Simulated scan of single mutants.
Amino acid sequence: MIAVHDLESAKKKYHDLLGATFVDAHWTGEPFGIAVSIAWDAGIELCAPLPGREDSSAVTGFIATHGEGVMSVFFNVSDGEVAMDRAIQHGYNSVHSLDYTQAEIDRYLGGLFQRYQEFNLDTGVRCGFTVSLARIEARQEA
């Protein structure tokens, strides 16, 4: 996840650089004051403060401290609960998690997956960015 000031210019930049195709997913960041756009083909998630929420956005503080850049790194895991248990054993906690149903995957993620689960850890101080553990399984062709 890359924090940016201007989502539209960042989408253009990464499209031009990598050929990435972005899909807006503002619904996922709206509770946090974040506009989100994801390029599944390039493995990039961009986030920017939602217009009118610049002062309260979860990304505003990061940009003010670090500037634009990598805010979170997602690591694919085969078992989210086991990975989370390991993180807890090493002193990390989840600050936000989600586990989509198939209906939510179909509605929000274009039906691309048969499983989508993630845990965002409190690693900012120790790592300089958030580590996210994600169990993402592609939908199997019938």
Rank of each mutant, 00 (worst) to 15 (best):
H15N: 15
A58K: 08
G67I: 05
T65G: 03
P31E: 08
N76K: 15
E30V: 02
L7G: 01
H26V: 11
V73F: 04
L17P: 02
G43E: 09
N93W: 09
F62G: 00
L98V: 11
A39T: 02
T21G: 06
V59R: 01
M71N: 15
G29R: 00
V82M: 14
A20Q: 05
I44R: 01
V95G: 12
A10C: 05
S56R: 03
L46Q: 01
H66Y: 07
P51M: 00
T60D: 06
E45G: 05
G69V: 03
W40A: 12
Q102L: 14
V23E: 15
G61S: 11
P49I: 03
A10P: 03
S97K: 11
D24G: 04
S97M: 06
F32N: 10
V70E: 04
A48Q: 03
F62D: 05
L98P: 03
D99T: 08
V59E: 08
N93C: 13
I44P: 00
T60R: 11
E54V: 00
H66P: 01
V70R: 04
I63E: 01
K13T: 10
A20I: 04
Y92L: 13
Q102A: 10
L98F: 14
F74E: 09
A103E: 15
V36L: 09
G91S: 10
P51I: 01
T60G: 10
W27T: 13
L98W: 14
Q89G: 08
K11F: 10
G69I: 06
E81Y: 04
F74K: 11
W27C: 07
H90A: 07
E81G: 03
D16L: 10
N76L: 15
N76Q: 15
F75E: 13
I63Q: 05
R86A: 13
D106I: 00
E45T: 08
V70A: 13
Y100T: 00
G52R: 02
A39H: 02
E68M: 05
G69D: 13
K11D: 08
F75Q: 12
F75W: 12
F74M: 15
H66R: 07
P31H: 06
I34K: 06
E68Y: 07
G67T: 07
R86F: 14
D99G: 03
E54Q: 06
L109H: 04
G33K: 07
V23N: 07
V59H: 00
D85A: 12
S56K: 00
A10E: 01
I105K: 01
A39M: 05
H15L: 01
G29A: 11
S57R: 02
F74D: 11
G61R: 04
M84A: 09
E30N: 08
I63W: 02
S56D: 15
S57Q: 05
S78L: 08
D99Y: 04
H90G: 02
L17G: 07
R86E: 10
V77D: 04
T28F: 12
A103S: 13
G80R: 00
P51G: 03
V36S: 05
E8D: 15
S57W: 03
L50H: 04
E81A: 14
D24V: 02
T28M: 14
Q102G: 08
K11H: 08
D79Y: 11
L98N: 14
A42E: 12
H26I: 08
V36F: 07
P31S: 05
G61D: 12
